[in-house]
């Protein structure tokens, strides 16, 4: 996880280095664009130092929780992120829940009724959702639920209802991905012998499908959900912009437009860290869901301990 984050920061540093444009020009009003002023700003911001020095200095600060100060607003990036991330997190979280709650049953139903009308409809809908650009979908939602029906607010998140439309926007793409993954991994599982065994025991069909087959089908579904969380973090960008939510993604875009390097760096680093943590949690969930993985992990630990013990014994 740590090396990943180091690479992320390095990559952004290099990218900024090779992109044209000077933050000093955005900071200074255009009538004071003199060489002198620009040099002064460069010096203030420490932009004259070589890239490696800046990189190490940035990392040193970041470890202490200081992600720098915005060039434009002169506010602490750490504080801003702490303030804005909850919005993004809530949207991401709600949208993941939405996608799972709708996607898995859809997929199961499609698999159970393979090659029937139900299956075709569900495949069609998921294909439609996958291919629909989500900014357009967001506008449709806003127009229908916000303007025509007037049920839900189209801007801001003063009340919890404000989260529904943005979350739905984000959920839509991964809902389709989850549906399709669930369908295909369920199709694989319901042909397995143990499913017949469960039926032969006299188990009711619902339990056979959801209790036995779905549990086994979960591993690839969890993988898809995990990787989709990354998409969700990115997808909030569209939702935050369209529904005017002061979230992290919007903060990052503002920073990008203004060449506000600390803002961009800080946000990207933070999101990468969140994503790394999510992936770690996904790995842990694997072990919780699948005893095969759990047992393997336990064996590895045991054998590690054994060789250690053996070495110690040999040393003694």
């Amino acid at each position: 996880m740590i090396p990943t984050l180091l690479c992320v920061v390095l990559l952004i540093f290099v990218l900024f280095e090779i992109t044209p444009g000077d933050p000093a020009l955005t900071i200074l009003p255009s009538d004071s664009w003199t060489e002198e002023n620009i040099a002064r700003v460069h010096k203030e911001l420490g932009l004259d130092d070589p890239i490696l020095v800046r990189y190490v200095r940035y990392l040193g600060n970041a470890v202490q929780g200081d992600l720098g100060t915005s060039y434009l607003t002169k506010t602490s990036v750490t504080n801003e992120i702490a303030q804005k991330f909850p919005y993004t997190m809530k949207i991401t979280f709600i949208s993941v829940i939405m996608a799972i709650v709708a996607g898995i049953p859809f997929g199961v139903i499609a698999a159970k009724h393979q090659y029937t009308l139900t299956d075709n409809i569900s495949v069609f809908i998921s294909l439609l959702f996958v291919s629909m650009p989500n900014f357009w979908f967001a506008l449709l939602l806003a127009r229908f639920f916000g303007v025509q029906l007037g049920w839900l607010p189209t801007t801001g998140v003063e009340t919890w209802t404000g989260y529904i439309l943005p979350s739905a926007t984000v959920a839509i793409t991964s809902l389709a991905a989850i549906t399709r993954q669930t369908r295909s991994s369920m199709l694989e599982q319901i042909r397995q012998d143990y499913v017949v065994t469960a039926r032969a025991k006299g188990q009711i069909e619902g339990k056979v499908i959801y209790g036995h087959a779905l549990k086994n089908a979960l591993i690839p579904i969890i993988t898809v959900v995990g990787t989709n969380i990354a998409n969700h973090l990115g997808g909030t960008l569209v939702a935050e912009t369209i529904f005017s939510i002061p979230g992290l993604a919007k903060y990052m875009i503002t920073g990008l437009n203004g060449r506000d390097y600390p803002v961009v760096l800080g946000s990207v680093l933070f999101i990468s860290a969140v994503f790394c943590i999510v992936m770690m949690v996904v790995d842990i969930i694997y072990a919780v869901v699948d005893p095969r993985i759990r047992i393997q992990m336990m064996k590895k630990n045991n054998s590690g301990r054994k060789t250690k013990a053996r070495k110690e014994a040999a040393a003694a």
């Binding site: 143990y194 065994t197 036995h212 869901v289 005893p291």
Partner: peptide
């Protein structure tokens, strides 16, 4: 294959 691999 007759046993469910993830149940005891």
């Amino acid at each position: 294959t007759a046993l469910n691999p993830i149940e005891t």
